[in-house]
């Protein structure tokens, strides 16, 4: 669906079900340079089971208009504006990679509004390789190729997508190249690199939190994810073997099973 936030049109997938104000809201926040489409194997489930599942495209990404936001803090405020814009008072947040920085910051800023937080491939800080950052800022498609290489674990490099017929490295590449690289990936990488408040923000989080980490994640290694989780009161951690940073696609089923249990327990759906 489309709606306006700060005068710009925002696109969010509703997982194939119409938006229904009565249902609790889950907002899915994608990673650097990507779009709502990375969440397709999680959102549709929640949409069909008593939730509004909104997989948003950040401004300037995917099908959303406007310019890309330049800092994680701005993105965090923007996610809060999304909750208001769709007429809800509260929400659960799910983030992947950069989306973890955004949702951690957002939860710390709006503790009364955010009911649960789920982090995938998250860390308290995501310092960027300077060369990768420079390639992305210079609109070089090699930045996307490098990201796809590092973001997939050894198993993911072979393929074996849960949806028959899809080859996920190429699908990810197409998503990351769907808009101008320097305006999406370039701006996002710089925002990640600049963000220093992750660990402080984490300490303020009181809502139930889940971290899903993967043993072969090179971008946000398990060690970093655990460090972040250790700062959040009562945070649950689930570690997936033989999987890389793109766990939401590489191990979509496992991720959905863990996420489903966590969210339905801590933020129950509208029963039909």
């Amino acid at each position: 669906m489309k709606f306006k936030v700060n005068g710009h049109e925002v696109f969010a997938s509703t997982g194939g079900r119409p938006f229904d104000k009565k249902k609790p809201l889950i907002i899915f926040v994608h990673g650097s340079g990507l779009t709502h489409m990375t969440w397709v194997l999680q959102t549709r489930y929640f949409a069909f089971h008593g939730y509004n599942a909104l997989a948003i495209d950040l401004p300037g990404h995917g099908l959303s208009s406007g310019e890309s936001l330049k800092s994680i803090e701005e993105m965090a405020d923007w996610v809060n504006d999304v909750i208001d814009a769709v007429g809800h008072k509260e929400a659960s947040l799910v983030g992947h990679s950069q989306g973890c920085l955004v949702t951690v910051e957002c939860t710390s800023r709006y503790p009364d509004k955010i009911k649960t937080l789920s982090l995938m491939g998250g860390a308290g800080a995501i310092p960027m390789n300077p060369e990768l950052l420079s390639l992305a800022e210079n609109n070089d498609p090699k930045a996307v190729d490098l990201m796809m290489d590092w973001a997939h674990g050894p198993a993911g490099h072979f393929g074996g997508h849960p949806v028959p017929g899809l080859y996920h490295i190429n699908t990810g590449t197409m998503l990351a190249k769907s808009r101008t690289i320097q305006n999406t990936l370039g701006v996002d990488f710089r925002a990640c690199d600049n963000y220093k408040n992750g660990f402080e923000a984490a300490k303020k989080i009181k809502c139930p939190t889940l971290s899903i980490l993967a043993t072969d994640d090179k971008m946000c290694p398990v060690k970093e994810g655990k460090k972040l989780a250790s700062l959040i009161d009562g945070s649950q951690v689930d570690i997936i073997d033989n999987c890389g940073h793109m766990m939401l696609l590489e191990e979509a089923d496992r991720v959905l099973t863990v996420l489903k249990k966590f969210i339905t327990t801590n933020y129950p759906p509208l029963s039909s």
Binding site: L41, F48, G159, P162, P164, G165, L166, A252, D253, L256
Partner: peptide, 25 residues
Amino acid sequence: LERGGHIYSRISNPTVGVLEERVAS
């Protein structure tokens, strides 16, 4: 289509799926 997976071999099959991914790659 909430999850990936196989239902019935007219729609998809794991062996055929390997071929599909291989050619796509």
